[in-house]
């Protein structure tokens, strides 16, 4: 749709609504490297002291940023890997394999897909304590992976559904077992799906806040979200420059992935999926 006569009113309304967000984005960047004087919005001189958390501990009680970053990366990547692995096999079984009770599994999958898992956190909290996994990275990895699983299986099933049946039939006729057909013939067709799921679950793990907050509150298992939250909570002076610098650092992977995969991400999130 191009060449419209009255496009400017529309743009104006959009711009007005977008202004708060744009201001927030803008000052998110500005304040992290230059603190304006109180009562002013004009950026002061370049000031990197907000980034001091990179080379020193903000205060003695906290783990170093590198420890926290490592935790976050381990948490997000292991979760993403687990989700993708389990979804790849389960999605295929639900999409293509004959098995008793298949309708129930599919119905259950949809219900789980919609079910608000956060309501279970109290019970999960107690289960983790009973299993001895409370306040461990392994514990939150397992929980996060399990909670993301219905979404992952659903996505992967969708990708498998688009692979023509004839390819599998041809494989079977060519003498290959169903396992081999899956591994050698079908998997190469769903590689984009694998990549998408890997990226989405990584992003989801990277941003996760409530699970680590509740299930791994100790300082040795802190991830960037809980680290940043703790810094904000404990700082009486509201040092927004410091918070924003940490926020910048925290969001780098998100922004990078966003810039590279913007279109694909919009497509996947637009496919009526969970978020």
């Amino acid at each position: 749709m191009t060449g419209t006569p009255r496009i400017w009113p529309l743009v104006l309304i959009l711009a007005i609504f977008s202004t708060p967000l744009v201001i927030m984005y803008l000052y998110q960047i500005i304040d992290s490297v230059a603190s304006p004087d109180p009562g002013s919005l004009i950026p002061g001189e370049l000031d990197l002291s907000n980034w001091r958390f990179l080379w020193e501990r903000i205060d003695s009680g906290r783990p170093t940023i590198w420890q926290v970053t490592f935790n976050t990366f381990l948490f997000a990547s292991t979760t993403a890997f687990l989700v993708t692995l389990l979804s790849t096999t389960a999605g295929y079984a639900l999409s293509r394999l004959n098995m008793p009770g298949r309708p129930y599994f599919l119905g259950g999958l949809i219900i789980l897909h919609a079910f608000p898992t956060i309501t279970l956190i109290i019970a999960i909290f107690i289960i983790l304590q009973a299993l001895g996994l409370f306040d461990t990275l392994l514990g939150i990895i397992l929980v996060k992976a399990a909670l993301e699983l219905p979404f992952g299986v659903w996505i992967m099933k969708g990708f498998y559904d688009t692979v023509p049946w004839e390819i599998e039939m041809a494989g079977v006729q060519d003498g290959a077992s169903r396992f081999r057909v899956w591994w050698e013939l079908v998997m190469p067709q769903v590689k984009p799906g694998l990549a998408a799921l890997l990226i989405i679950s990584f992003l989801s793990g990277w941003s996760e806040f409530v699970l680590p907050l509740v299930l791994a509150p100790g300082s040795s298992t802190q991830v960037l979200s809980t680290f940043m939250n703790a810094v904000i909570q404990d700082d009486a002076t509201a040092d927004f420059g410091l918070f924003k610098a940490i926020g910048m650092y925290y969001s780098i992977p998100v922004i990078v992935i966003y810039l590279i995969f913007q279109k694909q991400l919009m497509n996947i999130y637009g496919g009526g999926t969970k978020g």
């Binding site: 984005y25 998110q28 992003l203 990277w206 941003s207 979200s225 940043m228 926020g247 925290y250 966003y258």
Partner: peptide
């Protein structure tokens, strides 16, 4: 962006 930025940020 609000959709994919970490909630804490």
């Amino acid at each position: 962006l609000p959709r994919i930025l970490p909630p804490v940020l």
